[in-house]
């Protein structure tokens, strides 16, 4: 292991904050991976409670069914890395004020489920927080076809993207592909914070 590199990374991550909008399959898994890397702080936003059906792909446990996702995920993060600070907002993101919880984060991760909300959120971050890097994902449903997933970079927006995937309204959501994309997003966030790994 390169000690100098890992120390540099540790320091940089400790002083960094990532905001996550939505704590479903994308958001919960991205948050856990980032906590494992030693990220200093996570800002988590969701309004939902954990349901049994979520356990097929989201980072929660059976005994957390019925709890608000923000509280359940905070518990799980604390069990893995108590050093990561967790700030939570139990709220539904509404057009016109979606950017508010994310003003002070270094990178925003879009991890919402509905296509319209996803697009509205990205537009709001890009227009209201002009210098804020945002990572998003589109096309998580189904299984297989890992190599159809690509990263699209457009200014401050980085998208984990599979244009041939079907909508989750017409397809299944399964752990491997959802978690693959969640970690793809987390990995992009790391790249933005640390710079390209050379």
């Amino acid at each position: 292991m390169d000690k100098e590199k890992s120390e540099k990374i540790r320091k940089k991550l400790k002083n960094s904050t990532v905001g996550i909008a939505g704590l479903g399959g994308l958001g919960s898994n991205a948050a856990i991976s980032l906590a494992r890397t030693g990220i200093g702080k996570l800002v988590l936003v969701d309004f939902d409670i954990v349901e049994e059906s979520n356990l097929s792909r989201q980072y929660y446990f059976l005994d957390q069914v019925g709890k608000p996702k923000i509280d359940a995920l905070k518990e799980n993060i604390k069990k893995i890395n108590p050093e990561t600070k967790v700030e939570t907002y139990n709220l539904k993101l509404i057009k016109g004020s979606m950017e508010k919880p994310f003003k002070d984060v270094d990178v925003v991760i879009e991890a919402l489920d509905n296509a319209e909300t996803k697009a509205a959120f990205i537009e709001e971050i890009l227009t209201k927080l002009k210098d804020k890097p945002i990572v998003a994902a589109s096309g998580v449903a189904g299984y297989g076809h890992s190599d159809r997933i690509v990263t699209k970079k457009l200014g401050k927006l980085c998208m984990c993207y599979d244009e041939l995937a079907k909508s989750s309204d017409d397809d299944v959501l399964m752990a491997p592909r959802v978690i693959l994309m969640a970690n793809w997003e987390a990995n992009l966030a790391l790249e933005i914070i640390l710079g390209e790994d050379k």
Binding site: G22, G24, G25, L26, G27, A111, L112, D113, N114, A115, E116, K118, A119, I122, A136, A137, S138, G139, V140, A141, K152, L154, M159, Y161, D162, E163, A165, K166, S167, S168, D169, D171, L173, V178
Partner: peptide
Amino acid sequence: VLHMISGG
């Protein structure tokens, strides 16, 4: 054209 597909 990049578009959003539901799922998350």
